[in-house]
């Protein structure tokens, strides 16, 4: 299955943001959610089919013009599945050009046993632009080994590469230098700075989570966990706190989100972060 989704957000000239382009095709269906209050808009990616599956070739293009504020979320985790043998790996390319503010906060990617999924992300943030980029990965569904996943992320700010990261996960490759026995990983890149509402001083560096000032203008927060809840506990407050920014009101999420083929459920926070104990 080949699919392209395209989202273009522009300043509407009245202090708000309008979606100049919002189109996609199954399984990449972007939907505007939330009201039009505030300066920003929120778009949810709505999965139109199970997957990605082997052979899928998916592309998401996002452009955020100067003065525009866009938050992108997804309604459910992305579940990479094996699909038909002999087909090439499933592929997801995300390309974003950001002159305004982009907050990319999707649900996790789950690497089901037997999957072979390649994700490639390239984000260009112009000087003066603002980025919050979250990527979560869960290695295998409950009690199953992980599939094969290869992630490659390039984030550039003001014409220089700020963050360049690749991660390859495959069955039987657990190393205490990489992920060890942890099954969940979350990363959050903020450029050029953490949202003003996030105080790194309140974040405690542990042996499973850290906030790191990058060499260039930006931060990386990384967390590992036995499951995605531990990762969320570490990283969500940083994303949740940013909800107060012009991106709009927090989107209430369902307590449980059905994922992919429905054989598995991912626990998601039942309340917006501001109401959760962890945020206080």
């Amino acid at each position: 299955m080949r699919a392209v989704a395209r989202i273009v957000a522009e300043a509407d000239g009245r202090g708000g943001t309008r979606l100049a382009v919002l189109r996609g095709e199954s399984p990449l269906l972007p939907r505007r959610t939330g009201g039009s209050s505030g300066a920003g808009v929120t778009v949810h990616l709505v999965g139109g089919a199970a997957g990605p599956l082997r052979g899928d070739d998916l592309r998401v293009e996002v452009t955020v013009g100067a003065g525009a504020h866009l938050t992108v979320r997804s309604v459910a985790a992305q579940l990479a599945l094996p699909g038909r043998a002999g087909l090439p790996p499933s592929r997801l390319v995300v390309h974003a050009e950001v002159a305004g503010e982009l907050r990319w906060l999707p649900e996790p990617l789950i690497a089901a046993a037997g999957c072979d999924h390649h994700a490639r992300t390239h984000v260009e943030v112009a000087e003066g632009g603002t980025l919050l980029w979250r990527e979560d990965l869960v290695c295998g569904r409950h009690a199953e080994p992980t599939g094969t996943v290869s992630l490659s992320t390039t984030i550039r700010y003001a014409g220089a590469t700020l963050y360049r990261h690749e991660l390859a996960v495959a069955p039987d490759t657990g190393s205490p230098a990489v992920l060890g026995r942890y099954r969940a990983l979350g990363t959050l890149v903020a450029a050029p700075a953490l949202p003003a509402t996030v105080l790194p001083a309140t974040f405690r560096t542990t042996s499973s989570a850290a906030i790191m000032p990058l060499a260039g203008q930006g931060f990386l927060a990384t967390a590992v966990g036995e499951d995605i809840r531990e990762v969320r506990a570490a990283l969500d407050p940083m994303c949740g706190a940013a909800e107060g920014a012009p991106g709009g009101a927090p989107q209430a999420r369902d307590g449980f989100l059905a994922v992919g083929d429905g054989s598995h459920r991912v626990h998601a926070p039942a309340k917006p972060f501001a109401e959760r104990e962890i945020a206080t």
Partner: peptide, 22 residues
């Protein structure tokens, strides 16, 4: 090109190094 050189990351090495430094 520099951007195309390998970039394999190791999350536990990053986190461990930060924790160690404290």
């Amino acid at each position: 090109a520099v951007n195309d050189l390998p970039a394999a990351g190791a999350p536990l090495l990053d986190i461990g190094a930060e924790h160690h430094a404290t």
